[in-house]
Design a binder for these strands. Structure first.
Lengths: 344, 344
DNA sequence: TTGAAAGCGCTAACAT
DNA sequence: ATGTTAGCGCTTTCAA
């Protein structure tokens, strides 16, 4: 026999389909006699009844799904975010459609379009650039939109992001306390809030510690990749810039830095201390294990889910943004600088 | 104005909704006059019409979605599989629901139930154990089921898996050619096809190379984790087992092996060569970079998608299973053994 | 080649 | 407290 429908349950229980609907929905169960409700629930279970979500969505115009837009699932940053989001939204009865953009604007447009076609009830975007017209458009529609990990310039779009400024401050304090004075920042793309905020915080930190803001100590990388990190450090060494420590804009840049140092026969931390950002998987297995700022990625996803649920349940409510606290994980890649400034 | 429906398009184009439906569906477009079809397509586009997938599913009883069951998305093995699957299925108009089981039977049952509730048209399972009644049940239903990465005992359930036997043979040949004779295998769980097949292949390889099958050279690990790998190697060293190389059942076991060697002051590859399995991300950044058997995870997902589509389109067709070829990635963790057998 | 009509399974306004 | 009714948007059989 085919999958039983609500009518089948109604027939078996000797009531009208509408009664079954009311009895099965916890929201409306009190509208129906307790005994009948019991009977309905039992027959539903005995028949192995499962509501058809498509029929429900067609009727209610709410799909109980949300869309998550990320650059690339194989970037180790995102799986924990996805799980945090799914775990919390799943409890609330929502499913999550995950789409990848590979940092390509066209693919992003197509991805968002595919979510639109699926009638998602809300959007979570991990692809925000500071200036991002597509997101502005989306936010103008009548659907909750939430940014994770990165933000846009616009303060009115709610977001869940790491407290980049505090993270950089932690890392810088650590380096300064170790005795470093010539600290390089491998800055991420300045079109991204993460890249931008971390550079900004770096400059603040220099000021706070009474260190000069020397322009040659900042390298802007075009992307958050190993390759960009390696190139940046190679350039610094080629230019004979003196430094004893590197604060990388993220872990991949730090890994690239490791590569460049090794290639030039420099040792970490003996010659150069390195700090990363994110504490992605296996950063503790590098050689040396990487000191890095830990971002609670799972919590970013979970908190995003909570905020989105608020927006879904009370659309009129004023949107909030959340900064999640970070912590510094000290490992062997940072140590006091060599007695004298490294001679290049 | 609200999202336009098929009726809106029909009205604007001056035709019956049924005609619009026929014109919009490439399958039935030839049933309608070419000019009318053109006109319908244009008005649909100009109105920004998007078909409602829920209405379609309700009518056709096909959801155009498949379910993917994996242990844990944060295991770096799975993101590439997910992407391969999504990329190919997406092209065919299917969406993928991903659910995690965390290697817990109850959660697996709940996960599969959630997919059932969503009316998925097919299942892809990455959680197979050799003996797996739940999968047998699922396969008995009238829905395509496909296994990836691991298989069950039953040969009649189609699967896409790595050619573990060949992979082990490659690794063993490499070690033997380097001169190793006392080679340890850190075997994965024997309840999983991967753990089982690789151990089996290890024994075959010993035989092929005329090496003795010494029982003390095999350690069965309870799980594919760093911790299990470290414990296994600690035990070998405690027991004074002599060996010059380790063939780990997967990369995580190899990483655990690294940890144990370092803890005991042994050096890789000077004292012990190590080979991993999977070539997951960052294995090239370990110290030393890990020689490992590369598994084409993206291709596993992509091939699974193709096979599943076959099953979806031609249910009567005989199911096939596919073994994907592996390759050995030689890095610095393997070298000829020290002149004399290591004295313990 | 196009139109008419029915119905997929569910919910919600209204009636009793 | 329960039943009646209509309809969400689409596809598909049948009729013209």
């Amino acid at each position: 026999m085919n999958r039983p429908t609500l009518r089948d349950v109604a027939q078996a229980a000797g009531v009208h389909p509408a009664t079954v609907s009311r009895a099965l929905n916890p929201q409306t169960r009190q509208l129906v006699n307790a005994d009948t409700a019991q009977r309905v629930l039992r027959t539903a279970r005995s028949l192995g009844y499962r509501p058809n979500p498509f029929a429900r969505t067609l009727k209610t115009a709410r799909s109980a799904t949300v869309g998550l837009v990320i650059p690339d699932l194989t970037n180790p940053l995102f799986p924990p975010i996805v799980r945090g989001l799914e775990d919390v939204l799943g409890t609330a009865g929502y499913g999550v459609w995950v789409v990848n953009t590979d940092n390509d604007e066209q693919r992003e447009a197509a991805a968002i379009e595919s979510l639109r076609a699926r009638n998602v009830d809300g959007y979570v975007l991990a692809t925000a650039r500071l200036n991002h017209p597509l997101i502005d458009e989306l936010a103008a529609e009548n659907v909750p939109v939430l940014l994770v990990n990165r933000r846009t310039e616009r303060a009115d779009i709610p977001s869940v992001t790491p407290d980049d400024a505090s993270g950089v401050a932690l890392a810088m304090r650590h380096l300064v306390e170790l005795g470093h004075r010539r600290i390089v920042h491998l800055a991420g793309p300045q079109s991204l809030s993460t890249g931008y905020q971390r550079l900004r915080a770096f400059r603040y930190a220099l000021h706070d510690h009474g260190l000069p803001d020397a322009p040659e100590l900042v390298v802007e990388c075009e992307s958050f990749t190993e390759d960009a990190g390696a190139k940046a450090v190679q350039r610094l060494l080629d230019d004979d810039v003196e430094f004893t420590a590197v604060l990388a804009g993220n872990d991949l840049l730090a890994v690239g830095c490791y590569d460049a140092l090794e290639e030039r026969g420099l040792s970490c931390p003996a010659d150069v201390s390195v700090v990363g950002f994110n504490d992605t998987r296996f950063m503790d297995k590098l050689h040396p294990p990487l000191t890095t700022v830990r971002i609670p990625h799972y919590d970013i996803g979970a908190e995003a889910a909570r905020l989105l649920l608020e927006g879904l349940n009370q659309p009129q409510r004023h949107a909030r943004s959340v900064l999640l606290p970070l912590s510094l994980v000290v490992r062997a890649s940072t140590a006091p600088p060599a007695p004298r400034t490294r001679a290049t």
